[in-house]
Amino acid sequence: MERVIGSIRRECLDEVVIFNELHLRRVLKSYVDYYHGTRTHLSLDKDCPRSRPIQPPRNGRVIAVPQVGGLHHRYERLAA
């Protein structure tokens, strides 16, 4: 639990100015979605808890998809 709280603090809350409780809840929900769906974890062999398919180069060029208000990004291939 301490590791997750530390990750939330270092990767999210240290970088964002929180205005009120509603804003905090939105930021934390966005970060949790990023944490489970995009962020790689060494204990999972650099995969995320919600596994994603490997996208081969023939699927197109790589684009950055902003997450957590642009604080982090997910990279995907854009079909041509």
Rank of each mutant, 00 (worst) to 15 (best):
I5F: 12
P49I: 00
T40R: 11
D47L: 11
V17R: 04
E15D: 10
T40N: 04
D14G: 07
I54G: 12
D33R: 08
G70F: 09
H72S: 01
H41F: 15
D47I: 04
I18M: 03
C48V: 07
P53G: 05
D14F: 05
L24D: 05
L42F: 08
Y31Q: 03
Q67W: 02
T40C: 04
Y75I: 08
A80N: 09
V4Q: 09
I8G: 03
H36N: 08
R25Y: 13
E76A: 05
H72Q: 11
H41T: 08
L22R: 14
Q55Y: 05
R74F: 05
R10I: 03
L28K: 09
T38E: 12
C12K: 00
V62P: 00
E11C: 09
E15V: 03
R9K: 12
Q67R: 15
Q67V: 02
R3P: 01
S7M: 05
L78T: 02
G70C: 04
H36L: 04
R50C: 07
V17G: 02
H72F: 03
R25A: 15
P53K: 14
Q67H: 13
R9H: 12
H36F: 04
L24I: 05
R39S: 09
S7F: 03
D14T: 15
I5C: 10
K29N: 14
N59S: 14
R25E: 12
P56G: 03
